[in-house]
Structures are given as C-alpha cells and as structure tokens.
Design a protein around this nucleic acid. Sequence first.
DNA 1: AATTAGCACTCGTATCAAATGAGTGCTAAA
DNA 2: TTTAGCACTCATTTGATACGAGTGCTAATT
Lengths: 344, 344
Amino acid sequence: MALDLRKQQVLEAIVVSHIETAEPVSSRSIARKYNLGVSPATIRNEMADLEEIGLIRQPHTSAGRVPSQKGYRYYVDKLMKKADLTPREERLIRAIFAKRVKVLADIIQCTLKAVTQLTDYLVFLSGPYFENDVLKKIKIIQLMPGKALLVIMAETGWVHSKGMDLSSDITADDLAYIELVLNHYFQGLTFTQITRTVLKDVYNELTRYRKTINHILEIMEVVLQEEMKENLYLGGTNRILKQPEYSDVEEVRNLMNFIEREENLITILQDADPYRVTVKIGEEIKSEQATKYSAITAAYNIGGNIMGTLGLLGPMRMDYARAMTVVEHITSVLSEALSEDNFY
Amino acid sequence: MALDLRKQQVLEAIVVSHIETAEPVSSRSIARKYNLGVSPATIRNEMADLEEIGLIRQPHTSAGRVPSQKGYRYYVDKLMKKADLTPREERLIRAIFAKRVKVLADIIQCTLKAVTQLTDYLVFLSGPYFENDVLKKIKIIQLMPGKALLVIMAETGWVHSKGMDLSSDITADDLAYIELVLNHYFQGLTFTQITRTVLKDVYNELTRYRKTINHILEIMEVVLQEEMKENLYLGGTNRILKQPEYSDVEEVRNLMNFIEREENLITILQDADPYRVTVKIGEEIKSEQATKYSAITAAYNIGGNIMGTLGLLGPMRMDYARAMTVVEHITSVLSEALSEDNFY
DNA sequence: AATTAGCACTCGTATCAAATGAGTGCTAAA
DNA sequence: TTTAGCACTCATTTGATACGAGTGCTAATT
C-alpha cells in the first residue's frame, strides 16, 4: 500500500489531530492547521481516497474523519516521528528511582508511579518470573523435629525456599537420601521442565518414602508455581478515566471488565516481543473485548536476562509516539536499577 | 433519640425502599407497599418530623425522601432485620471453597470470588500479617561459599526465609556466633518489637562483624517488613459499577481514585474491630473522599489468632443486612479453611 | 387531638419542533 | 489538477410546553 506524499501528509494530519482532540477531523481544519498549500476541497478528495483504502472512516455522513485501525498501524509503522521526554520529565524519573530501596516490591511501585505520572494510560507490569531459570541445587534442611526447609537454588543466583511439615519418623539420613535423589533428577533442568514432566518419575523412584516424597514434591511444586506465576501489578486505573472516550459509562464498564480479568493483561505481556517495543492496535490484541484498545509493551531485564514486561493500555486513539518513548525509557531505567544491585 | 413506633416504621420503609430502588421514596409509595394503616398525608407529617431530626433528607423540593447518614446508622443499629443466605448461596460458597488448594494465594482468590458472586460491591482483603507473631528461633545456613539462608521461625509455626549474599571471608564459625547472638537478643520478641527497637542494639554488640551483621540485619528487616506488610487483595471493581450511583462518570472517577490509593482501603481494614462485624457509614470512614461510601468489615483468624480482615465497600445506599451476613459468613468459612490445614 | 381529603404549588424531566452549524460530495469553472 | 461554490445531510442545541411526581398546608372528619 504505497501512498503518495500528500496522502501521507493528510493521513498523518488526521491521526495527529485526532489523537490530540479526540474529535473527527475535518478537511478545513487540516487546511488551516497544517499548511499543505492546498484547499479543503483537495483534501476532501484525498480523504475520499484514503477512506476507500480503509485507512480512515467517517462516523456519520456529516462528520469529519477518524483513523481506522489500519490507519493507526500505517501511522505507527511509517509516519510517526519519535517523541522525546523533556529534561523535566527525565529528572522526574530519576527522582522517583533515586530513593534506592532494595526490595523488589518497592522498585515495582516506583515503576508504576513513574509511568502513571508520565501518561494517562493504564500501566501494568509482570514481576520477575523464573520459568527459564535452571535448577542448580536442592537442599532439605531439618529445622526441628517435624519441621524442615526446602531450598531451591537456581543458576541466576536467586534462592527460593519454603518451610514444610514432616512426619516425625523421618530421620536425617532419610532426608539426605531424598535430597540426593532429587538433585540427581532435577539438577540442570529449567523450572518449566521440572513441573511439566519429571515430578512424577521421581515419585516412582522413591517408593520407600512414598508419603514423605509426595509431600516434598507437593511443596516443591508450590514453590515453583509461585515463582513462575506471572505476578501482575497494576496502576493508573483512575488516570485512564481522564481520556474522553471514558466519559461514557458503558465504555468504563467494558474497560473495567477487561482489566479485572488478569489473564487479559497477562496475555498481552506474554505476546510481547521481548527484544523491542511492541505496539498492538485494536484487534491485533488477541481478545474479543479489546478491539477498541491499544497496548504498548517492552521487556525489562536483569543483567541481560529478560525477567518481565511493562505494558501500557489505552484507547486506540493513544499517543503512540509518547507512549512508546515512555515505555522504552522506563524499562531501560528499571533494568539498570535491577541489575545494579541484589534485590530481595 | 427515641422514636415512636410509627416513626420507626416509616424510617425503616424509607431505608429499605431506597436501598432497593435507589430512588427517593414518596409518602404514597410507603402507604401502598407497607401497610401501616395510615394515609400518605399522615406519613408526610411523620416524614417532616424525621427530616427535622436529621434522619432523612429531600434531594429537592418536589422529590421524595432519602435516608441521611444518621438515618442509615439508626437503621443499622436499631431497625435492621438479619438477612440469611439461601441454601443455594450456601452451596455456592461451599463449592468455591471445596477444591481445597493448600496455597494461601489460591484460597484468597477463592474468597474474593465467593464474595464477588454474592454481592455487587467492592471486595478487599488483607492477607495474613504477622506483626504480633513471636520469634522462636533464627538460623543462618550456609548454602555455598558466599551464599547463605536466613531462616526465621515463629511461634505460630510459620517459617520465613530468604537467601542472601555474604562476603566470602566469613567462616562457618563466624556465622554460628552471629546466630547465637541474634537468638539471644531476639528470641521471644514480636516482629514489631524487633523492627521497632532492638535491631540497632545488636549492631553495637557485634562490632567485630560490622559489615556482615549490617547486611544480615538489613535482610532480616526486609523479611520482617515483607511479612508484616498488609498485603491487599482486591476484586469486584466491575461488579460495583452495576450500582446505579455509578452511571455518572464523575462518581466512577471518584470511586476509582479512592480505591487506587491502597492506604485508603488498608486504613479501613485496620480500623475494624477484630471481634465483630463492623459497619462504617459515610463520614464514619476516616477519609475525606469516602463521605459517600459505606464499608463492612470482619476479621478472619487461623486457629483463633486474628490474621487479616475482609472488607466490602459500596455506596452508602448498600444492602447492609445482606452485606453483613455475607462478610460474616465468608470470614468464618475462610477461618475454618485456613485452620484446617497447613498453608504455604 | 389525631387523621386525612383536597388542592395549590414546586420543580425536575420528557417531548417536540425549529434553528444551527459543521462537514461532506458534487459540479463546473479556473 | 485544483478549487470555488452550493446543495444536502445529520447530530446537536435551544426553547417552549406539557407533564407528573411529590410535597405542604388547610380545613373537614373521626
């Protein structure tokens, strides 16, 4: 779909103007604001063409034009100019991340706060997950009679542990043996591989300790599930309501409905390309309910390993240039902050 | 404020009817629906009196009456009749809690789900917190050179642990000594006491290991903070939008604003009386922004120890009788489920 | 003394027609 | 190829009117 220069200019004008005002854009207003050197009538002709190709549409006969999903896509891919943060905004971000706390939950709060202050869209974010982390060593440590600690050490250096109850007739030797077998089976496998396939094999190996091993495997599964589960953090719910599309209650209801189902947001984060800023427009988001929204995502990393993803959700008429800049900038600051130090 | 019987009946009729319809209640509709054996004119006279005392108000001259905050309070304290769950609802709850999973996060999800299905209000819930838990024993376990595990065992039986990095020149003997001193200082104290006061004392005692001990105390503080922090879970955001008061966008915005500040909800949970179902109406909730809402709360326990609180937030015109029954019933089911087994 | 029928009065809301005006599409001239 | 001009469309605003739900008060009734 190759457009001549003027059609591109008209399309860009429509998109930019509609993003700014949220109103349909008329031929006259384009002629006035963007001096393309032609009259409204000419622009109207171009608009008729653009509509035929499906890049813009008319809400009703006597209204201006608004971009279609395809139109936004064309704009994002070919026409959009990169936005920059103002020095003031850069300072704001630095200030928010400055009070360096070493707790993961806190730095995630900082991230939410920063993005919330920079945009009026919904921010969401998956916490670090370890599905590709490789198991290095398992330890079972007896704390007192009937109580032990299951410790799972991973290649990344993270240590996951959980207390558990044991029947009191298990001896230290028994535990040592169980530990040995577990290590034999699981060392070098990723968390995903462990939960998916091999937990059951071990069960058969250790028939002698059937009850205990059953219990331990259960706990182990719990630990792994917990660490692999997508922890979702959410912010900006009130901010996004500022967008004029949500002065209609029905729209608000739909939106709330969408974001209350965490799977929806998690799917968006999982579908994201981990190596670049991803833009999904309208139906490109794989969800029946999301046809009116757009999402921008980017992954963050710890020492180069992708650990999670940050997302922005807004109406299709969102300021893509700015949103992309913000998401990119914040994920990079976040990655930096996380890599700099050990977190707990 | 003693009201004669008929005034009470009129007030009750107004509250009940307004809770049901969300519309101002007229004298005629009362005469029709609740047969008090008097004419609308008489009821009008009573209403004028009730208005003078401040129990009801008139939105505008030619409208019916609605209960005031004081009016709801009077209703809740003196007039309200206990609601019961239908057998069908009881079954629903049992079904939801039936698929007994031993993971704390899961049972909390069950709770949210159950309440969401039973009411159209906002549900929120603090996870178990341990501020009054008493420290039984600390263990520091070396996992490999430069890596150790800090384990904190508490009287309740819960085990909290966290991995940490150590400088490699620390020997096993050093750790044993540090462990000894820490136990000496902290055994028998509650988590709150430990973080509030004594962490620094130990620091001075162990000057020889200044760097290491500093690090360990830091980790310890992180662990304790994390376990003592109010974990807030939230549900029903879309459900509450069904309430007719939220067909006005401005109201929705206010509500979202309120619930997005977690402190607001946490404060409500903390202000609750742990030993009975608490009802806060309008300004009784200590927050500028909550003058239009009401909150119902009840605590849940594990083996008799209060561990957290469940709350419902709705418009002041909420179905108090039903909400109270639901909250009471669910907290008791939740307590039972939690006490029955060990959770991880 | 308490109740109630009756009626005037208030005030929000629904209805409807007319006016408005923003915007387009088409045609014919430049 | 561009554009001025004009007829046409249609959502929105406006204002006038009617409507009706509800109250408060007074005078009659029990």
